Simulated assay, not measured.
Amino acid sequence: MPLRDLLLALVVVSTWGFNFVVIQWGLHGLPPLLLGALRFLLVALPAIFFIPRPALAAKYWLAYGVVWGVGQFGFLFTAMKLGMPAGLASVVLQSQAFFTLLFALLFLRETWRWYQLAGLIVAAAGLAIIASSHGKGLSGSAMSLIGFSFTLCGAAGWALGNVLIRHMAKSGIVFKASHLIIWAALPPLAIFSMLTLAIDGPAVVSAALLNISLQSILAVLYLALIATILATSIWNDLLQRHSANLVAPFSLLVPWFGLASSALFLDEKLLPMQWLGALILMLGLVLNVFGARISVGKLKYA
């Protein structure tokens, strides 16, 4: 991967790492499904009146909107409302890299290289160490079972979105990632709006909107404009130009930024074992990214 794309990937994962803190701030005054509806409202409007539809069949951008928008964020927002701390959510959600590898193997027939598998195994060990440190009595670190389960469902939705993008690229479908993000916001906007009215009720939704705080407004702006439009557009562009097996493991850096920002802004204190797990996670990423060069080096100098 060129240095420019490597740096872009790092920008994306740092943005998404802080994203979990912002979600927690937004949930202080808004129900999770309403927060999702507002996020995608700002993504879609007024942009759809100026940005043409992506140059691909409607079934693709509609499907992407469902698996990426509803599947990932619907489960994630609800999980964090039901007791999933921001820092730990940033860790568990990275299981999407493993889901992506599995889905790419099943649906795209992509093969795994030894260094990619080894890198993911090492990274998984780091994630396991971080996950095992939760619930030790530190502030903001307790994780509920339902929150954990919903976060895994969100990870599967993210992975399906990754694989769908890669499928379109391998099929020769060329489109602008920014156009896809704008139009794919319509399905989650509609679904979240209906769900929040049905589950939370019109009275709760109205009260939340009438009494919305500046903190919630700024959270929605960050989630929509920075974390969704900017970061996801860059991510999808990388997926179009590189294998899903190469791009997806970069997301394993998100817990590093998620845990650090959660400790700084939400007082979710980090344990020494969490720092150790993060370092092992990064080692797995390095092995995945530079494994091909290691293999070539062995062949060259053998």
Rank of each mutant, 00 (worst) to 15 (best):
L285D: 01
R293S: 09
M282P: 04
V296W: 11
K269N: 14
W275C: 11
K300C: 08
I294M: 04
G291P: 00
M282G: 09
L283K: 02
K300W: 09
A278Y: 02
G291D: 01
F290H: 07
G284Y: 00
G284R: 00
V286C: 10
L299N: 13
G297F: 04
A292F: 09
V296Q: 12
K269F: 15
A292L: 12
L276H: 07
I294E: 01
L271S: 10
G284V: 03
M282L: 13
G297V: 08
L287G: 00
A278G: 08
W275F: 14
R293Y: 05
V286K: 07
P272M: 04
Q274H: 10
V296C: 15
G297C: 07
V289H: 03
L281A: 07
L287I: 06
L281R: 02
P272A: 04
L276S: 07
V286T: 15
I294Y: 00
Q274S: 12
L299A: 14
L279F: 10
L279Y: 13
N288H: 02
S295K: 13
L270Q: 02
R293E: 08
A278M: 12
G291Q: 04
Q274R: 11
I294R: 01
R293W: 05
L279T: 14
M273V: 10
L281Y: 02
I294L: 09
K300D: 09
L279S: 15
F290D: 05
M273Q: 10
G277S: 10
L279H: 14
I294T: 01
L283E: 01
K300N: 15
L281M: 09
V296P: 15
A278N: 06
L279I: 10
M282I: 10
F290N: 05
P272W: 07
L285Y: 06
S295M: 12
K269S: 15
A292Q: 13
L287C: 01
G284K: 01
L285T: 02
G297E: 05
Q274E: 11
I280T: 03
G284C: 05
F290W: 11
M282A: 12
M282K: 06
L299I: 13
L279V: 12
L270N: 01
S295I: 13
